[in-house]
Nucleic acid binder design. Structure first.
Lengths: 186, 186
DNA sequence: ATGGACATGTAAGGGGTTACATGATTGC
DNA sequence: GCAATCATGTAACCCCTTACATGTCCAT
C-alpha cells in the first residue's frame, strides 16, 4: 500500500521514469521504504490504470525509449489524503527482536555474538546515513522547494537516533549476558 | 517466513493448540510479531505437511474438539538454524517515517499534529508495555525454564527504549517546526 | 571484450490481510 | 438475552520477492 504513496510522493517533486524512481528510492528513502525495480514498474502500471499517474513515451535514438510518468490531480489528492491520515500505529515486525525473545533456546555465547553482529551492523548503517542528506540535496536541490529538506533531515535524524538506541541497547544486553556467563563459571 | 519460526519458538516451550498460539502471540510478542488467528491455522497445516510439527486430536465433550501441536526433531532443528543465523539486516519499512519525509507537501501545522499523535501513541504503547513481562511470567513461569525470562526482558526493554527515543525525536521535530511557524508569521 | 549505465518488463510463488463461516458452553 | 471464551477453518485478494528476459551505448 505504501509503495504506491512513495511513488506518488516522488512524482510530486518531479516527473520521472520507472528507472529514475528506482534510483530515487535507493538513494534516499531506502532507510524507511524500498522496492525492487520490477515492483516499481508493476506499481506504475496499476497507478496508470487507476488514473493516479499518466505517462508519455519519449523516443530516444542514443538510449532506450522511456516512459516519463507524471502525477495527475486525483493522484495528488490520493497522496495528500494518505499524508494527512494520522493512524499509522506504532507497532512493527522485527524478526531480530523475535530471535532475542526466543534466545533462551540458544546459549549466552551465541547470543552475545548475535548482539555484537547487530551492534556492528547498526554502526555501519549509522555511518552510511551520514552522507544521505548531502546526496539527496545534491541531487534534488535544483528541482525541489527548500522547505522539503527540513523533513528529509527529520527522517534521517530518526534513523540516526534509532541506530544509536540499538547500539546502546545491544551493549547493555551484552553486559548482562557476560555477568550470566561469569556466574555460570563459578 | 518468521511467523513459522515464532510458532516453532512457542512450541519449544510447550505443546499448544492454534487457538493458544494466537493468544500467546497477542499476550507476548505482539510488539515484535503478530498474526491473524486464521493465518496461524494455515501456517500450522503447512508446518505439519513439512513434518516440522505434529498434532494429536483431543475430543472434548464440554468444549469443541482441539488439535494439540508439538514440535518434531526436524522442527527444532529448523528453529535453531533460524535462531543462529545472524544476518537479519537492520533496515526496515516504516510508513510513518515516509510520511514525515514527504511532509513538505503538507503544512507545518498538520505535521505538528501528526507528530503529536505519534508521540502520544508511543506514550500509550510504552505504558502498555510495562505490564507485559509480568503477564508473560505469570502465564508461563510454571512451564518455562527461568533462563528464558532474561531474554523476554531484553526484548521488552528494546521496545521501551525505542518508544522513548520516538517521543524525544518527535518533540525535537515539533520544536523545530514551531520555530518555522514563528518565522513565517514575522 | 567486458562491465556499467540506461531502460522496461514477465512469471511464479510466498506470505500476509480481511472477511466470512460455524457452533457449543459459561457467566452476567 | 448477550457477550465472552473456546475452537477451527475457507476464500479472495494484495503486496512483495526472486528470478528471468532483452537490448543499446559508452568507457576502459
Amino acid at each position: 500500500m505504501s509503495l504506491t504513496h512513495g511513488i506518488l510522493g516522488f512524482l510530486c517533486y518531479n516527473d520521472m521514469t520507472g528507472y529514475h524512481l528506482a534510483k530515487a528510492f535507493r538513494s534516499s528513502i531506502h532507510f524507511c521504504w524500498y522496492a525492487q525495480t520490477s515492483q516499481i514498474y508493476l506499481e506504475l502500471s496499476k497507478l496508470e490504470q487507476k488514473k493516479l499517474v499518466k505517462s508519455r513515451l519519449v523516443i530516444q535514438s542514443d538510449k532506450p525509449n522511456k516512459k516519463i510518468y507524471s502525477i495527475t490531480d486525483s493522484g495528488k489528492q490520493e497522496f495528500l489524503q494518505w499524508l494527512n491520515d494520522n493512524h499509522d500505529g506504532v507497532g512493527f515486525k522485527n524478526a531480530f527482536l523475535m530471535k532475542i525473545f526466543f534466545s533462551g533456546n540458544s546459549t549466552p555465547e551465541k547470543t552475545i555474538l548475535k548482539l555484537q553482529q547487530f551492534s556492528s551492523d547498526c554502526k555501519q548503517y549509522k555511518s552510511d546515513m551520514e552522507c544521505v542528506p548531502q546526496d539527496l540535496i545534491y541531487q534534488y536541490k535544483k528541482t525541489v522547494e527548500p522547505e522539503h529538506t527540513l523533513y528529509w533531515d527529520f527522517a534521517v535524524e530518526f534513523i540516526y537516533q534509532y541506530m544509536q538506541m540499538c547500539i546502546d541497547w545491544a551493549n547493555s544486553c551484552i553486559k548482562a549476558l557476560s555477568e550470566v556467563q561469569e556466574n555460570m563459571q563459578k
